[in-house]
């Protein structure tokens, strides 16, 4: 990837972060940590890897995104707003009565959201069904599935992974957000999951372990998943919960936190400064 494209993806990730924070700040608090950790992945998915059309969000041949960790809705809405699926101003309706942007992603409310999630683990199976369905319908498209590391406590996740391998769903790409933390604390303290890469490999996935907050690493890993074959793909994203906003990164318990006016102004100013720097580089 050339410098220009790399900078463009970093800019997109920062814009998604600003958009996600704009949504959360508008209601005062929300799932900041787990939204910020997947913004780089969303930037590369929407900016480079996924075949999508914001003007035609129900296009059957599009690539689909299932955010099984549905509480990362603000990050997804940020990405969709940046991509032009709906007006940017809509972000500040997050969780308001009658909104199209509920805390957890809902395919029936938000243009560009491909599946309703929120009860953790469930998006994994549905994504398998979507990938299988597209294959059976002969559609040339793929399903990308974002799963949380804390979410992987749910047994259904592992039922789905076994199913994906059994059905040779090479049109399914799992992006596992290994950000090390869940609501009550560190994953290693709550319910240690061990070596995700080894587990996914043992389940029959073509597995890569990368820095998931690095757009270039993400782009390369996602390029590899275009290979077809007879295995589903997994990318274990070694991520930082709260990535991109140092103050959030350094907050130990950062799953769902308030965002004050002062914090919002400071954090978005930092992100805008980074955007300006990358724009210069590009």
């Amino acid at each position: 990837m050339d410098r220009k494209e790399s900078a463009a993806l970093k800019i997109k990730a920062a814009k998604i972060r600003i958009a996600a924070l704009t949504a959360i700040h508008s209601i005062g608090s929300g799932h900041v940590g787990g939204s910020l950790s997947i913004c780089d992945a969303l930037a590369v998915l929407f900016g480079r890897e996924m075949k999508t059309d914001p003007k035609n969000p129900k296009w059957p041949e599009r690539d689909k995104l299932v955010t099984s960790k549905g509480h990362a809705g603000p990050a997804v809405y940020g990405a969709l707003a940046v991509q032009g699926y709906f007006p940017y101003e809509m972000l500040t309706t997050l969780n308001r009565p009658g909104t199209h942007l509920p805390s957890h992603t809902d395919r029936n409310l938000t243009p560009g959201v491909d599946m309703t999630t929120g009860s953790l683990g469930q998006g994994t199976s549905v994504a398998c069904g979507m990938a299988l369905g597209d294959r059976l319908k002969g559609r040339d498209c793929r399903t990308f599935l974002i799963v949380g590391d804390g979410e992987s406590d749910e047994g259904q996740v592992w039922e789905a992974f076994a199913f994906a391998a059994a059905k040779k769903l090479s049109n399914l790409v799992v992006l596992l957000d290994w950000n090390k933390k869940q609501l009550d604390g560190r994953v290693d303290e709550i319910l240690p999951m061990g070596d995700f890469a080894a587990k996914l490999t043992a389940f029959g996935f073509d597995t890569q372990l990368i820095n998931g907050n690095d757009v270039e690493a993400l782009a390369a890993a996602l390029e590899h998943t275009r290979g077809g074959g007879d295995k589903p793909y997994a990318i274990i994203m070694d991520n930082v919960k709260g990535a991109g906003v140092p103050e959030v990164e350094q907050t130990e318990m950062n799953h769902s936190i308030p965002v004050s006016d002062e914090q919002f102004a400071r954090w978005t100013a930092q992100l805008k400064a980074e955007i300006a720097k990358w724009e210069e580089e590009a």
Partner: peptide
């Protein structure tokens, strides 16, 4: 096997897969 999807003894996953297939038009 493309019309009868054997899911194994994993009912929660079976229902989720069924829902995904419904989303895909089945």
């Amino acid at each position: 096997p493309d019309r009868a999807i054997e899911c194994g003894i994993a009912e929660a996953n079976m229902i989720g897969v069924a829902c995904g297939l419904a989303a895909a038009g089945f």
